[in-house]
């Protein structure tokens, strides 16, 4: 076995293990960390395919920002994932059956198709070949329209997030000294005479609260 093949299998198995743990772990923080591991292994696979730019972009964008954001969210809100697992045990047998059937069918189809085709050697690029240049060129020529659309999707995300969360400007908690000095004691407290010897006074007290 060539060393490259060994590296590929190692990365692929790590990827599958990590991805499986993301959905099976109980602790959301651990799940997010396994997601990071999955991203790393995927970027390793891309590195093997000599797509260095994409590999680095995956690490920068997904590990560097998206996964960290996940971790922030998970840590800041106490995400109790337990209610999501209600019925997990009940539905597991049927789900497992359907999933394994699909997996076997997919495996058979794809195996039959691709096992016979000989492994094609990757077109080997010269030393002066720049990944970034090629991706950039494609992005701004052939894929200019989809690229612009993706930017509109991001704009929509921003607008939707603001529309869903902004509740107007909230008054700050700082005190305003000039208003404080102008306050009149009579606005703040009012002394009311309460006679407790009157019958039914206890009810008045309760109702007055």
């Amino acid at each position: 076995m060539e060393f490259k093949t060994f590296v590929f299998y190692f990365l692929a198995m790590t990827l599958i293990y990590a991805a499986a743990r993301v959905v099976t772990l109980r602790n959301p923080v651990h799940a997010a960390l396994h997601l990071v591991l999955a991203f790393f292994s995927a970027s390793g696979v891309w590195m093997l395919l000599e797509a260095e730019f994409l590999a680095v972009a995956l690490v920068f964008v997904y590990v560097g920002s998206v996964a960290v954001l996940f971790l922030f969210v998970v840590m800041m809100f106490d995400v109790g994932a337990d209610h999501l697992r209600e019925g997990f045990r009940k539905n597991l047998p049927v789900a497992a059956l359907v999933a394994s059937l699909m997996l076997i069918e997919m495996g058979c189809t794809l195996w039959l198709r691709f096992s016979t085709s000989a492994e094609r050697a990757l077109p080997h690029a010269g030393a002066g070949y720049s990944n970034v240049k090629v991706v950039g060129r494609l992005l701004f020529t052939q894929y200019a329209y989809p690229f612009e659309l993706a930017s509109v999707v991001l704009l929509t995300g921003v607008v939707a997030a603001v529309a869903l969360t902004l509740r107007g400007r909230r008054a700050g908690r700082s005190a305003n000294p000039s208003e404080q000095t102008l306050v009149n004691p009579r606005d703040r407290i009012r002394v009311v005479e309460m006679r407790l010897d009157r019958p039914g006074a206890e009810n008045d007290l309760k109702g007055g609260e």
Partner: peptide, 21 residues
């Protein structure tokens, strides 16, 4: 297929937000 998919996302994302607006 790329533009088809992006169009679907561009349609769906605002509609999710509108439903929950």
């Amino acid at each position: 297929f790329m533009t088809l998919y992006l169009g679907v996302e561009l349609l769906s994302l605002p509609v999710y937000a509108l439903v929950a607006l």
